[in-house]
C-alpha cells in the first residue's frame, strides 16, 4: 500500500561519480536520482561494474559525489565537514558488508555496541542496547562469543545487529548473503525485511535474482545509470488465485 505520508530517508539528486581524470577517467555513476522512503526495502541490481557498490558507498557517506547531492534524512552530505559526516554515519546509517567487517578481538555484543561507544555512550548502556539488537536478530545467547566461535550466518547477524543499533534507520547492505548458504541467507533477508517493515529504509545491492523477491522495489543499474525499476508492489495477493 503506497502511503504518501512516509518520510524520505535517502535521496540521491542527479549524482555523478567519476574516478580518475582525463582520457582514462571512469564514470561510476551518471546523473543518478532516486529516493527511498521509511519502511521501504529496495534491491539494486545490475551487471558487474554497473555502479551498484559506488551507489551504496555514496548513499552511506563513505565516498563523495563528483556532482549532485546525497541527502540522508534530509541532511545534504556534501555540506557536512568530516566530523559531522562521521557523526551522521554513526547515528543514521547502518552498513552491512559482504565480508562482515567485524573485529575478531571483540565479542558479539562489543562489536554490535561499537558505533554507540564511538559516539560517546557509556559502555554499560551501549552494551544493553547492543544486547537488544542481538535479540532482534535472534542471537542474544551468543553475545559473549568471539567471532571465531561463530558460524558465517551468526557473524552476519552480528554485522546486522551493528547496522541496526540505536536510532539508525537507513540500512545499506552490500551483497549481505554473499558467503552464506541459501537457508542462512534467507534468515539474513528475513531480518532486513523485518527492519523495513518496522520502518527502516533498506537498500541492498545484490546480483541474486532470488533476493529481489524480498524487496518492495528493484532498481536496475547499467553503465552507471538507472535504466529501469519495478513499481512498488501494492497487491501481491492478486498474483495468486483467491485463497
Amino acid at each position: 500500500m503506497i502511503n504518501t505520508n512516509k518520510r524520505q530517508l535517502l535521496e540521491l539528486d542527479a549524482v555523478t561519480k567519476t574516478y580518475g581524470e582525463g582520457a582514462t577517467s571512469v564514470a561510476a555513476l551518471r546523473d543518478v536520482s532516486f529516493s527511498v522512503d521509511e519502511g521501504e526495502f529496495v534491491a539494486v541490481m545490475g551487471p558487474s561494474g554497473s555502479g551498484k557498490s559506488s551507489l551504496l558507498a555514496l548513499a552511506g557517506g563513505l565516498d563523495t559525489a563528483s556532482s549532485g547531492e546525497v541527502y540522508v534524512q534530509d541532511t545534504p552530505l556534501g555540506k557536512l565537514n568530516t566530523n559531522e559526516l562521521a557523526r551522521l554515519r554513526r547515528r543514521a546509517v547502518g552498513y552491512v558488508f559482504q565480508d562482515f567487517n567485524l573485529i575478531p578481538t571483540l565479542t558479539a555484543v562489543e562489536n554490535a555496541a561499537l558505533p554507540l561507544e564511538l559516539d560517546g555512550w557509556k559502555p554499560a548502556k551501549a552494551h544493553r542496547v547492543a544486547k537488544n539488537a542481538l535479540r532482534q536478530v535472534g542471537i542474544e545467547h551468543l553475545a559473549n562469543r568471539f567471532m571465531d566461535q561463530l558460524s558465517g550466518g551468526q557473524q552476519q547477524r552480528v554485522a546486522i545487529a551493528r547496522a541496526i543499533i540505536g536510532e539508525r534507520r537507513l540500512i545499506l547492505a552490500d551483497e549481505p548473503t554473499g558467503a552464506l548458504d541459501s537457508v542462512t541467507g534467507n534468515g539474513v533477508l528475513e531480518v532486513l525485511r523485518e527492519r523495513a517493515d518496522a520502518g527502516a529504509a533498506v537498500v541492498m545491492v545484490t546480483h541474486e535474482p532470488r533476493h529481489a523477491g524480498w524487496a518492495d522495489r528493484v532498481v536496475f543499474l547499467k553503465d552507471g545509470r538507472i535504466v529501469d525499476q519495478t513499481a512498488l508492489q501494492s497487491d501481491p495477493a492478486s498474483l495468486l488465485a483467491a485463497r
Binding site: 535474482p209 532470488r210 523477491g213 528493484v218 535504466v227 519495478t230 501481491p236 495477493a237 498474483l239
Partner: peptide, 20 residues
C-alpha cells in the same frame, strides 16, 4: 528481456510474500 525481467521479479515478489 527487460520487460520480462520486471514482470518475473514482480511475480516472484508476490510468491516470496505469500511464502513468508
Amino acid at each position: 528481456v527487460q520487460t520480462q525481467r520486471i514482470s518475473t521479479i514482480q511475480t516472484m515478489q508476490g510468491y516470496v510474500r505469500a511464502r513468508r
